[in-house]
Simulated assay, not measured.
Amino acid sequence: MTLPRAELSTAAERFGTPLYVYDAAELDAALARVRAAFGTARVFYAMKANPNLTLLRRMRAAGVGFECVSAGEIARAEHIGAKGDAVLVNGPAKSAEEYAAGARLGATFIVDRAEEVGLLPPRSKALVRVNPALAVSTHDHLATGAAGSKFGVTLEQAPGVLRALREAGHDARGLHVHIGSAIRNAADFSAAFARLMDLHPQTGDLEVLDVGGGWGVDADLAGIAREAQAAASVFGARLWVEPGRYLVARAGTLLTRVVGTKRTGRNFLLTDAGMTELLRPMLYGAQHPVTALWDGEAREKWDVAGPACESGDLLARDVPLPSPTPGDLLAIGEAGAYGASMSSTYLTRSRPAEALWDGSSWTLIRRRETPQEVWAAELQVVES
């Protein structure tokens, strides 16, 4: 949690809960850490982590590019004026709409399978995504570089895909690797880079080596950067990186109020936020720091449970907290990534509002939906 308790309480009173709040200073600090570690590497933000337009505009103003994995994300990039080498188009099953939109912006496509060579728009810029077939230190659902993952081509296939791109008239710029998210062990990156370097005798020098992101928020960025730069130098390539969660996770906090308590086989602290606001604990078993914004000594442990009629709707387990009362405010930290972006309207719940703290004042950067807005796209057919 990067913001003072008083400011968090002010935001909750002003905008209501559940509420996502972001600290602009931490957003800037995270980008500064990446640039300090990776030097002249080109930075692309993995937009799926948090696509709020205000945050995207801040990053664009700072010279950051964007990695997009859907037509909607490409549209967001275009909306804020990003184009050309500021846009990457990624994904294992790109649609015709996504190819066309990427081509219109002059984006670089990340080729995920050999068949894509024949699907790309004419004279496209492209990188070949390589799956290094590694077991990495993260949740199975986040391990994109594992042998059983759906992402990328094999090490054996990569040189042939590069050749096929060139023969088809495309600009085969280089290789791409992304082994997962929230990776705890820096040795996982070392292993991935080593497997890429083994390809150099077959590929020759390249223009770009894109090593993705996936670094845990406590990762040794300097160490990872040294090895990434060494790999790029083997190929004579410029280094590109694609942080997502690293740039926004710590800047974001989910504020939720206590609705009540319940004691059955466990102690449940019931809150007005749950899986529809923060899906990561249910989806990945993610553990977020939880802080009580009320005073008292922590005497009991509580399971923080949301309002959905789902047994898995738990934001945290066994959290030591002071004795709670309805209306008390709880802060769930490291929620800036894949929090608001994965929020849903399941149960016709309104997705949470979002606010940005600039060091002196709050700005609402996404208002809370009304129920009518949630169902606005539905066609209400009335039978005669």
Rank of each mutant, 00 (worst) to 15 (best):
A93F: 14
L105S: 04
A77K: 10
A101E: 01
H139T: 13
A103H: 15
I74E: 06
A126I: 03
G152L: 14
K83E: 07
F109D: 08
V111R: 08
E115A: 15
L88D: 12
I80M: 06
H141C: 14
E116K: 01
A82D: 00
A168E: 06
R163F: 13
G81S: 05
R123G: 04
L155S: 12
A146W: 00
T138C: 13
H79Q: 14
E97W: 09
H139I: 10
G102D: 05
D85N: 15
A82V: 07
R166Y: 00
S124I: 03
E97M: 01
D112F: 03
A158V: 06
P132I: 15
H139Q: 12
A135Y: 14
A77E: 08
A168N: 04
G160M: 02
L162W: 10
A107Y: 10
L162T: 09
H79K: 15
A75T: 00
V111S: 07
P122Y: 03
A103M: 08
T144S: 11
G145C: 02
A168T: 11
A86C: 09
H139L: 13
V130F: 13
P121S: 09
G118D: 08
S124G: 05
L119I: 12
G81R: 03
S95W: 07
G145A: 11
L162G: 01
R129L: 01
T154M: 08
